[in-house]
């Protein structure tokens, strides 16, 4: 039984139940932008432009193979076909569907996708990029605790059109590691585990709200950890801004395979022209997530 959802500004008709707002009007579901179904996927693509260890990409298609979970075949920005591994579970399949597979689909649709998290503050959306482990999701959770609306985690879609770029809200799911829960004073016993397995202590933070429409983007914060004592922030200019957008793009290898790097550069330049980008360096050790969240709010509300 297929169900219609609305995520990333797109109508999605999916055979897999998604954690996303549903469209109740059957007429609306009639012409979906995207269809997600179970089905047979090829083991490899015929003429890949770029081959990674577990993906292949060509102009119109991308094949992602997650060992013991599923194969995902993403085509023309319109269809995702999923072949589950017999021993897999829906929860496992959804993790990679909502991450790499959806990221690939957005790339195919020409949407700028950053590896970033985002929340809404009074004046609009703010996003935070930076390498895995820098604290993007923890910062989202800390800001969410301060009343900000959750918009995106990891796969962050940006529409560069218009005078101001806007943030297109993604799946309302936020995953946090146990040590981050401790720092935020949350109890993991109350939360659902991302995967009930030893050696991976990661949990879902419940998000009640579902923001459906794009939110004007106020600033992008790029996080970095250095050997310093205190948190410092400074606004970037010129080419540095474009470079940060490029280096924080979600799965650059996918884009290369799709042959869209020139379009992507133009998009980054367009976004850089109208979006403040702030570099944030925080101490490698002993930094306080709550202090960082407060400083960021202070800066955007000033």
């Amino acid at each position: 039984m297929n169900q219609a959802y609305y995520v990333f500004g797109l109508k999605i008709l999916s055979e897999l139940p998604l954690p996303a707002p549903m469209l109740s009007d059957p007429a609306e579901a009639a012409n979906p932008d995207i269809v997600i179904e179970y089905g047979q996927t090829p083991e490899k693509l015929d003429h890949p432009q770029v081959t990674g260890v577990r993906y292949q990409a060509s102009t119109d298609e991308l094949l992602l193979c997650v060992d013991g979970v599923a194969r995902y075949w993403i085509r023309k920005g319109r269809r995702i076909l999923v072949t589950p591994h017999p021993q897999s579970s829906l929860e496992r399949i959804l993790i990679f569907l909502m991450g790499s597979a959806m990221g690939a689909l957005l790339h195919q649709r020409g949407i700028l996708v950053l590896h970033a998290g985002a929340v809404a503050v009074n004046k609009g959306a703010i996003a935070f990029a930076g390498p895995s482990g820098i604290g993007k999701s923890t910062l989202s959770a800390a800001l969410h605790d301060r009343g900000c609306l959750f918009l995106a985690d990891d796969v962050c879609a940006i529409d560069p059109a218009g005078k101001k770029s806007s943030l297109i809200p993604g799946f309302s799911r936020l995953k946090l590691w146990a040590d981050a829960l401790d720092k935020l004073g949350k109890n993991k016993d109350d939360l659902q585990s991302v995967r009930w397995i030893k050696n991976l202590e990661k949990f879902f933070i419940p998000i009640q709200e579902n923001v459906a429409t794009p939110v004007a983007l106020q600033a992008l914060f790029v996080l970095d950890a250095v050997n310093t004592e205190r948190i410092e922030m400074w606004e970037l200019t010129g080419m540095d801004k474009i470079n940060q957008l490029i280096s924080n793009t979600y799965r650059m290898g996918f884009l290369k395979g799709l042959g869209k790097t020139a379009d992507h550069f133009r998009q980054c330049a367009a976004v850089a022209a109208n979006l403040p980008i702030v570099k944030v360096s925080r101490p490698k050790r002993g930094f306080q997530i709550n202090e960082l969240a407060d400083k960021i709010l202070e800066r955007v509300n000033a």
Binding site: G52, V53, R54, Y55, L64, D67, G99, S100, P131, S132
Partner: peptide, 28 residues
């Protein structure tokens, strides 16, 4: 390097256990 792994594999090490990561490293 986590970055190297995530870039080249196509999905993130942070969704895998350490043993699952190790099984992919030779291919990386």
């Amino acid at each position: 390097s986590r970055l190297l792994f995530d870039d080249e594999i196509g999905f993130e090490a942070s969704d895998l256990t350490a043993d699952e990561i190790d099984r992919l490293r030779p291919e990386l």
